[in-house]
């Protein structure tokens, strides 16, 4: 396959970026998208130029590092996969592929196609955990958990924190990311204890970081490589409202302290 690539190039966060056009030839349809980019970078390096920087690590769809916006869709044209799982057989000979970084105010650009997604870590730090210390824990089977809850929690917990939900959302909202974590813990007895405070803290942090609001377009669900459902957002909304209306005021202050 012969392809034309239009790639966003930007030296660092403070410089101005622009699109550059590259040609890659003889790409095997069996190679992965990143192997195609590796080939491109090899060509660029051989010419003595700076290769395209892009985030990637595990290359098996689980670490959530990869983050390319390909032809108008995060992680490319296929459903339920990450960029590193995308294979060139999803494209046609002669295609032009436009590759952009995730775009959102809380994701400042680092270089070329790499953005800084620490904002997602900050949201988890605000409350995405169960406050238990190591040791002194009762037996794992002491509290039975309905299989349905465990399964739903697992569905939500499969989030890889890639940020595709933010990248695809018209409003750069992180509701699916936050909703997934809030849901996971709200569904389990271990997480219920802090549920009210968790949801308030995490939502407040998300707003504070400059993510947009949810307008229920559900692009996030369509682009989530782990196909996490927007029902998790609804569950978070429910939790949030319940917490705002019912939770004791002092709880918020004591939480996580």
């Amino acid at each position: 396959m012969d392809l034309t690539l239009k790639i966003w190039r930007q030296k660092n966060s403070s410089s101005k970026g622009k699109f550059e056009t590259y040609k890659v030839n003889d790409v095997s349809p069996d190679s992965s998208f990143f192997e195609m980019l590796d080939t491109l970078n090899q060509q660029i390096i051989e010419k003595g130029n700076d290769p395209v920087a892009f985030d990637h690590d595990c290359r098996e769809g689980i670490c959530g590092t990869c983050s390319l916006y390909i032809n108008g869709r995060p992680h490319g044209p296929k459903r339920g996969i990450t960029t590193c799982q995308l294979h060139m057989r999803s494209f046609k000979n002669g295609d032009t592929i436009v590759i952009e970084p995730w775009r959102a105010k809380p994701f400042p650009l680092v270089k070329d196609l790499i953005v800084d997604r620490s904002a997602l870590d900050l949201i988890i730090q605000a409350g995405g955990y169960v406050s238990v210390n190591t040791g002194g824990i009762p037996d794992a089977n002491a509290i039975p958990i309905p299989k349905m809850n465990a399964d739903l929690a697992m569905d939500a917990a499969s989030c890889i924190g890639c940020g595709a939900c933010v990248a695809s959302c018209a409003n750069a909202s992180a509701m699916l990311f936050v909703g997934a974590k809030v849901s996971q813990l709200a569904l389990l007895p271990q997480g219920k204890i802090e549920a009210a405070n968790r949801v308030q803290k995490m939502v407040a942090e998300m707003d504070h970081l400059g993510f947009g609001n949810c307008s229920n377009t559900y692009a996030c669900e369509a682009e989530c490589p782990k196909e996490i459902k927007v029902t998790n957002i609804a569950r978070m909304n429910r939790q949030f409202m319940k917490a705002k209306v019912c939770a004791e005021k002092h709880e918020a202050a004591s939480f996580g302290g």
Partner: peptide
């Protein structure tokens, strides 16, 4: 295993709710 369950790790369970 106890520690992880307490952290909210959603291990696979049987219908009876046990691991």
């Amino acid at each position: 295993i106890d520690q992880c369950v307490a952290q909210g790790v959603p291990f696979a369970r049987d219908y009876g709710g046990l691991l």
